[in-house]
Computed example of a mutant assay.
Amino acid sequence: MISAESLAVFVLACLALGATPGPNVALIVGTSLKHGRKAGLLSAMGVNVGLVLQLAVVAAGLSWVVDLFARHFDLVRYLGAAYLIWLAVMQWRGAGKSTTAPHTSNHAAFGRGFAVAFANPKTLLFHAAFLPQFVTDTAHPAGQIALLAAVFAVIALIGDIIWAVVADKARAALSGHFTKMADRVSAGILAGGALVLLAAGRR
């Protein structure tokens, strides 16, 4: 059983990671700014379904999946960065325009979140290296890693929901004459997420 001290340190580490913006947060914030809270929350759900699958891979000890991502590290992150840049361009070009198909946008938001969750191979490699550090009983690590993965997933989901809600509040404050500016800020955030991916290394 994992010790209370290790679990407490792990929770603090998860909170610190959740407060650090990355490509996932860029997508969630950008989506909320452009399409509103519902789309932002759906984007967060997509991101976290992808995250849970990554954590499940680590908890199940599927090292071949981790190795696959490691071998194609650059290809995956370049594709992810290109996708975020494409979203940023579309956002910029549509700045100030009303969303003509909100249901389509909401439906696509989940898929975008899920796709971007897998766009950064460093995330999966990070989980594979990060979680075992907090295992206190190395003879029976599987159950402890599963518990740590579940805790990480819950904290990440709560953090992403907060990002989506805060971004929607900012969108409401910038409504009216500032809608175009909000959309362009959203595009800039998405482009920033792409830059983070392009700058990501294995370490």
Rank of each mutant, 00 (worst) to 15 (best):
residue 1 M to L: 12
residue 7 L to I: 09
residue 8 A to L: 14
residue 10 F to K: 02
residue 12 L to T: 10
residue 12 L to F: 12
residue 13 A to P: 02
residue 17 L to V: 06
residue 18 G to W: 01
residue 20 T to A: 13
residue 20 T to P: 00
residue 20 T to G: 00
residue 23 P to Y: 00
residue 24 N to H: 06
residue 25 V to H: 02
residue 29 V to A: 10
residue 29 V to H: 03
residue 29 V to S: 01
residue 31 T to S: 15
residue 32 S to A: 15
residue 35 H to D: 14
residue 35 H to P: 01
residue 38 K to S: 11
residue 38 K to T: 15
residue 39 A to E: 08
residue 40 G to C: 10
residue 41 L to Y: 03
residue 41 L to W: 05
residue 41 L to Q: 01
residue 43 S to D: 05
residue 44 A to H: 09
residue 50 G to N: 11
residue 50 G to M: 07
residue 50 G to Y: 07
residue 50 G to V: 07
residue 52 V to F: 12
residue 53 L to Q: 05
residue 53 L to C: 14
residue 55 L to F: 13
residue 56 A to H: 06
residue 57 V to P: 12
residue 61 G to H: 08
residue 61 G to Q: 10
residue 62 L to P: 00
residue 63 S to Y: 02
residue 64 W to H: 03
residue 65 V to G: 11
residue 66 V to C: 10
residue 69 F to Y: 15
residue 69 F to T: 02
residue 70 A to V: 00
residue 71 R to W: 11
residue 71 R to F: 12
residue 72 H to C: 02
residue 73 F to A: 13
residue 78 Y to C: 06
residue 79 L to K: 00
residue 81 A to Q: 13
residue 81 A to M: 03
residue 82 A to T: 07
residue 83 Y to C: 05
residue 83 Y to S: 03
residue 84 L to E: 07
residue 84 L to W: 02
residue 84 L to F: 05
residue 87 L to E: 13
residue 89 V to K: 10
residue 91 Q to M: 14
residue 92 W to E: 10
residue 93 R to N: 09
residue 96 G to V: 05
residue 98 S to H: 12
residue 100 T to F: 02
residue 102 P to Q: 00
residue 103 H to L: 14
residue 106 N to Y: 03
residue 110 F to N: 11
residue 110 F to A: 10
residue 114 F to C: 00
residue 115 A to L: 14
residue 117 A to D: 01
residue 119 A to C: 07
residue 122 K to H: 13
residue 124 L to W: 04
residue 124 L to T: 04
residue 126 F to R: 06
residue 127 H to R: 00
residue 128 A to W: 13
residue 128 A to L: 04
residue 129 A to L: 13
residue 130 F to V: 09
residue 131 L to N: 11
residue 133 Q to I: 08
residue 135 V to R: 02
residue 138 T to D: 06
residue 139 A to W: 00
residue 141 P to Y: 08
residue 144 Q to F: 06
residue 145 I to K: 04
residue 145 I to C: 11
residue 148 L to P: 06
residue 148 L to C: 09
residue 148 L to V: 09
residue 149 A to H: 09
residue 151 V to E: 02
residue 151 V to K: 01
residue 154 V to F: 05
residue 155 I to S: 09
residue 155 I to T: 12
residue 156 A to C: 11
residue 157 L to G: 08
residue 157 L to D: 04
residue 158 I to N: 01
residue 159 G to K: 00
residue 161 I to M: 14
residue 162 I to L: 14
residue 163 W to Y: 15
residue 165 V to W: 11
residue 166 V to N: 05
residue 166 V to C: 13
residue 168 D to T: 06
residue 170 A to R: 11
residue 170 A to Q: 12
residue 172 A to V: 07
residue 174 L to V: 11
residue 174 L to T: 12
residue 178 F to T: 14
residue 180 K to G: 15
residue 181 M to H: 08
residue 183 D to F: 09
residue 183 D to W: 06
residue 184 R to P: 04
residue 186 S to M: 06
residue 187 A to G: 15
residue 189 I to M: 03
residue 189 I to K: 00
residue 192 G to E: 01
residue 195 L to F: 13
residue 196 V to A: 01
residue 198 L to H: 02
residue 201 G to P: 07
